[in-house]
Design a protein around this nucleic acid. Structure first.
Lengths: 361, 361
DNA sequence: CTGAAAGCGCTAACAC
DNA sequence: GTGTTAGCGCTTTCAG
């Protein structure tokens, strides 16, 4: 027993029959083609509504169109920063009738490109990438040349002329150091890991630059991946002749570990050692002392990136319904977002500020 | 100028030509059909490798197959709990050659179903849902009946016989209350929001049950969405004749707000008031006092859910390559995961425990 | 075991 | 403005 109206999804042909028109007319209505008489369009629209017709993506794809889908690649979805970006991206995508394919590259540059290619073969309309690659990859460039809009965010794509939205990591780090110096600190250590990553690298450069400006000796410790690493490092610097009086943590995780290690050893912040961290987080203001941080705005970052991507996608669509080479002549946009120094209590006495309200991202 | 080898992706036809066989043979090889002579298969495989052939999903879809893609719907991707789940899901999916379509329902039950339907129309192989719906939706049931494997996790899908993985929220809450009682607390308040959500509701029930067991009067305050709400509530309970001596926070966010409000008012934890929170988090062990929590295991939750989904998907595939009704006869699996009470310092003196190491999820 | 033909639902190109 | 035809790449059916 075959059901007709039940169960099976209606096709364009059935709509045409109901609306008493040809299939092409229906197709034109669906795709907002201008050359359809208003009355005809209304008839078709009615039939579509009546049958609950929905376009079959697969068929469109087969004709060489792009899917109403974008791809998002981030290093780690369980990192609240990227998770927030992902949330924002899919939210905006949804508002534009795009579904979002999400992948965590787990910091594997090769995996990242492979997934990008996979997404491209799925005919996504565009790609949003927080790259984990330092080198840049010819394969990505090929995807781009083939007409796929690619937007890099948080980190630029090396060797690729793409739209990008990044953060002023260097300036943010300089602000942090400057703030510590203003508090009279001279021996400022800088700690973290992932120095090969663009963002961290920039922060280190900002730190070094500012230190050298002040004729202070930079003291960078990298590769501090685990809490134990940090514990060992803290033990080591505290045992030194002239231990640092302040620490600049290069990212959220390091901030937390340093906090933890210092708390364990009962070192008082900021009296015995001051601490400033890159990346603000929910509890920065709850812990005591409240942590002074350099805040980024992940929501804004994602929003801008999506905005650029949508622009590119629209650019392609307006040229023609079918595949076109990306308008690569249009020079890539480079957006740089500022950081914000949120002064709390971990770098020195700020009694008035002690209840600073957390900012809203 | 048309390029042949360059640029264009090879089709099954070209593979057939190169391998000197018919297209069907190639198709059979791709789909691991048994009835292909080993020597023929090898020829075809060679041709595939030589051309770098990849199956065209769109064409397969058009023939009524499911996409190598699953859908994941969570309430909020920027919530670290769900973000961790999402990370795990896509990780496992990737290992099984499945891409992951991710959507945040933003706690909108209708949006959730609409997105589920959209995913279904995209022919996803399965759906993973953390539902925000209390009622259950006929439309979801229809999707399931139509043969789409659906697995609920964190919260069961009302009115739907589906596989599900949930957490022992009730028992976890009971543990929390019991722990407070063991510390001599009698006036224990319970605070949070989202009580209409299954998980929170269960926790409240656990709290109430345990309180009533001990002939203690439950004191539940809900709707505490913002820090200001919590501040007001704290002011209110502290002004009462017999203020509570302990607070059970129903979720992470509430824990943080309570912590923040108490810190602002300089209330000492646990001396003046004890605090225990549902959901462990990164900094539970860094803040002072270290927060005693009821921990869930989001990674395990997601892993189990994926495992059930993959089982269902395999079930369908093994029946036949094309669409089949779900094996609904196979009774749905119900997995219940335990919580873990992590005792730290926010409920009373535990000097020995003060440096409890954070557990690994 | 293998191949030829039909057609999934849609749209580009061309007729009218 | 509108309809007809062909065919995207694949798999299903049915013959060899």
């Amino acid at each position: 027993m075959k059901r007709r109206d039940e169960d099976r999804v209606p096709t364009i042909r059935e709509v045409a029959k109901v609306a008493q028109v040809g299939v092409m007319t229906v197709s034109r209505v669906i795709n907002n083609h201008p050359s359809v008489k208003a009355t005809t369009r209304k008839k078709v629209l009615a039939a579509i509504a009546a049958l609950g017709y929905q376009q079959n993506e697969a068929a469109r794809l087969l004709k060489g169109h792009r899917a109403r889908m974008i791809g998002l690649i981030v290093p780690d979805l369980s990192d609240i920063f990227f998770a927030t970006c992902a949330h924002t991206v899919q939210h905006i995508a949804r508002a534009h009738d795009l579904m979002t394919l999400v992948v965590a590259s787990e910091r594997d540059a090769d995996l990242e490109v492979k997934q990008a290619e996979l997404m491209a073969s799925r005919m996504v309309s565009g790609l949003l990438i927080v790259t984990s690659s330092k080198e840049g990859d010819e394969r990505l460039r090929r995807l781009q040349v083939s007409g796929l809009p690619i937007v890099a965010f948080d980190r630029p794509l090396a060797g690729l002329e793409s739209d990008s939205v990044i953060v002023e990591n260097r300036a943010g780090a300089e602000d942090a150091v400057e703030h510590l110096i203003a508090h009279g600190h001279k021996r400022i250590a800088c700690a973290g890991y992932d120095q090969e990553v663009y963002t961290i690298n920039e922060r280190i450069r900002g730190y070094k630059y500012r230190m050298q400006m002040e004729k202070l000796k930079p003291q960078v410790c990298l590769g501090l991946l685990t809490l134990d690493d940090v514990r060992r490092w803290i033990n080591q610097i505290l045992a030194a002749k002239n231990p640092p009086t302040a620490i600049f943590a290069l990212n959220h995780r390091t901030s937390v570990y340093v906090l933890e290690a210092l708390t364990e050893r009962n070192i008082k912040i900021p009296n015995q050692i001051a601490l400033i961290g890159f990346d603000d987080f929910d509890l920065s203001n709850v812990i005591r002392p409240a942590l002074t941080t350099v805040a980024q705005a992940p929501v804004e970052l994602a929003r801008r990136a999506m905005s650029l991507l949508l622009q590119r996608i629209r650019g392609l669509e307006s040229q023609d319904g079918s595949l076109k080479k990306a308008d690569q002549d249009q020079t890539p946009a480079k957006i740089v977002l500022p950081t914000r120094l949120i002064i709390r209590d971990s770098c020195g006495a700020h009694p008035i500020r002690s209840h600073t309200r957390k900012h809203q991202d």
